[in-house]
Amino acid sequence: MRIVAEHLSYTYNEKSPFETAALHDVTLTIEEGEFFGIIGHTGSGKSTFVQHLNGLIRLPASLKHAKKHKAKKGQPLPPAPVLKVGEFDLSDKKTDFRALRRHVGMVFQYPEYQLFAETVRDDVAFGLKNFSEKKLTEEEIDSAVCAALEVVGLDFDELKEQSPFELSGGQKRRVAIAGVIVSRPEILILDEPAAGLDPLGKKEILELLHRLHREWCKTVVIVSHDMDEISENCTRAAVFSEGSVKYVLPPKELFRRTEELTALGLDVPLTAKLCAALRARGIDVDCDFTTEDFADKVLAYAASHPKKEGDA
């Protein structure tokens, strides 16, 4: 499933003193199979954008769009917004949004705070039962929950009867993720999946996301403000700022623009900072900004530019 968004705009609290434009004319395509990153400050519009993708925020109906803009005479009608996820046309009111949500899994920030059931099994099964067309047998539920727990690295037999509230922080988050992926979505969207975790927990969650990308969901989209996380993991990334998309590029090209990103008040990965500092000393290292590749390229540069004898 491909995600296509064109001319997407959204305003919070329209016509009140607190009116704020959350999205302004956003055009963005995410291909099937990507590990896509979305970068931006709090309030840059990135969360509003991803909530559009499974219909939690609806597009204004096309009719309303035309009416709203007819009022301003003499101005050409702005292009109508388009939002398609695979076969689903999200600008169409008749779209089956529940079917859409089955295909587009969404993991919110701190997903462990959405746990509610008495047992881990029941909590993970919640989405499964909601999305299923027919009534599932206990065996079917068990096997699906077991598979979902296994892929997030938890043991079904050990945890199924436990209360989700008695688990450790990291385990809770895994259970919450299992509760989203249990219905086998094709696209998985995660808002700050590693927020609040300690370094080890962070590392484990990112490994989990790669495992899910390989074995479970075709497309993974992460919203993050950790630039190192983006540069180490993503195929491409979109930069949101003040409601607009500024760049959509692979990390290798995106983080060459150290100055532009800094001007937007954004950070760059450590490797990009090092590359900039080296460039200032006349050393050009052309890497893809992963730690691994940076070290390799620096070593290759050192091999091809060996220090001459007698150099100070």
């Binding site: 939690l56 949500r101 969404m106 919110f108 959405q114 919640f126 219905s183």
Partner: peptide, 25 residues
Amino acid sequence: NAQRARGADLDRGGLMHKIRTTIPI
């Protein structure tokens, strides 16, 4: 939103359904 994303149908249904869907919230 999190429960909606997990397929909870919060916007329709009768009273009993409404009561049942409040628990996850």
